[in-house]
Nucleic acid binder design. Structure first.
Lengths: 230, 230
DNA sequence: CGCCGCATTGAAATTAGTCAATACTCGTGG
DNA sequence: CCACGAGTATTGACTAATTTCAATGCGGCG
């Protein structure tokens, strides 16, 4: 699907890990904003539940949202964190495939599925943009599977910090809006293991903690090497 | 994207786990067959490497293909097994995102990316079909992330057997064309752990082994319960 | 028959998880 | 302004699951 010349790929693999659906460029989906309405969800509140009728899609304006899936006995997995600009819930199914909850107070734009689909059929370019977004999501999902299946706790955390750094502008200062529990459920670890991995990176001087959820990357090269399993 | 009335969802979650891209119905992509050429790859041979220019897409006619990613020190992860009817390598990127190798002797249809794209722009319906396929792949990837991040070895194997049973017709007899090493790398386990999980299911009478890679499901209800973490 | 690749099984080592105690942060109310 | 409390994070000690290492078994093929 070389629908358009693909945007140049990120240099190192983990940087591709933008799990949620992000338009390639900011303006790509501007047309959608006209058919959406603004909603606000407070920290911890649920946007929709797994299995709910998927009659709306959402785009994050500010804040953060997590997608959750549960096993029968309550074990939780977070499939993605959605940050400003990310689309949530876009799929071909009748019902939502995960529960979406606000990580922090969040503002979203809600689109009715009907108007979304209408717009899509009117403007073929949007369909191609959507295809690109889905491809990107699939690529990121494969990267995340490698992480979950084969990386150690240290490597998982290193990868996570680099992903978050990349998604929040690419600088060395990273704000983590989610708790350690959220990070654990995203990486397939427990709270304690996440905390120990953070402490370890800190003691090695690879990162610095401004506070529990403000991290500064001090040695990016080493962090990247760790993330790749070197 | 309710592009078309979505096909009814599978009753239980793991059945949705058709990781590779499969057309919703057999005829959906028949148009593509006219622009493809047949190629044969022997067991163990490589179809393409991660990073290769993605100028071709493939569809499996018979046999099986695995997608692999490697970490720096050689740890391997298999992202998907592609069986008859599955499309391989479709993405928006310039280069392939994984290495594709034949699990067994395999016949494929190769499409040049150019003719694939041409066909796509000529027939909008194919684009919608492709969207559905990608959504399906994304759904399956999320399910696999839950498996990799939160399921035990037993639960992983139970899920895997049910996925394979579903993909090979839905009956209780399942042929596994891949080795234990492949299964391990797909589930984020070692060969030995896979083997022990198989032995355990066998000793419980939940499955029966005709040979090392021919399994018969004897107690599907229990296997499904295990897969869901009950 | 004997070799080779793959699978199984056992025992030891390691990683991450569990349980438990303590510390930090931030907001509220005295 | 400080004390208190709830929620979150850190740290330690112990446990359990999985991996690693090692040996044996099985099946097909020259």
């Amino acid at each position: 699907m070389a629908l358009q010349p693909a945007s140049h790929q990120p240099a190192s693999r983990h940087l591709a890990n933008l799990l949620p659906l992000t338009p390639a460029s900011a303006g790509d989906f501007a047309a959608f904003d006209k058919v959406g309405s603004v909603i606000i969800v407070k920290r911890g509140e649920t946007l929709f539940y797994e299995g709910d009728a998927a009659d709306c899609y959402f785009k994050v304006a500010s804040g953060a949202v997590r997608s959750c899936k549960l096993l029968a006995d309550g074990r939780r997995h977070i499939g993605a964190f959605f940050l400003a600009g990310d689309f949530i819930g876009i799929n071909d199914e009748e019902s939502h495939l995960f529960t979406a909850e606000a990580v922090s107070d969040t503002t979203l734009i809600r689109y009715s599925r009907r108007s979304f689909d209408n717009l899509l059929s009117e403007q073929p370019a949007l369909g191609r943009c959507l295809l690109r977004m889905l491809c990107h999501g699939l690529t990121a999902a494969h990267e995340q599977m490698l992480l979950l299946g084969r990386k150690t706790a240290q490597e998982k955390l290193a990868s996570f910090l680099l992903i978050m750094a990349e998604r929040s502008g690419g600088g060395d200062a990273v704000v983590l809006p989610m708790t350690r529990a959220d990070i654990g459920d995203y990486l397939g670890l427990t709270i304690e293991t996440v905390s120990r991995a953070v402490s370890h990176l800190k003691s090695e001087g690879i990162i610095q903690l401004k506070s529990a959820n403000e991290v500064v990357i001090r040695n990016r090269a080493l962090l990247e090497a760790m993330a790749e399993g070197v």
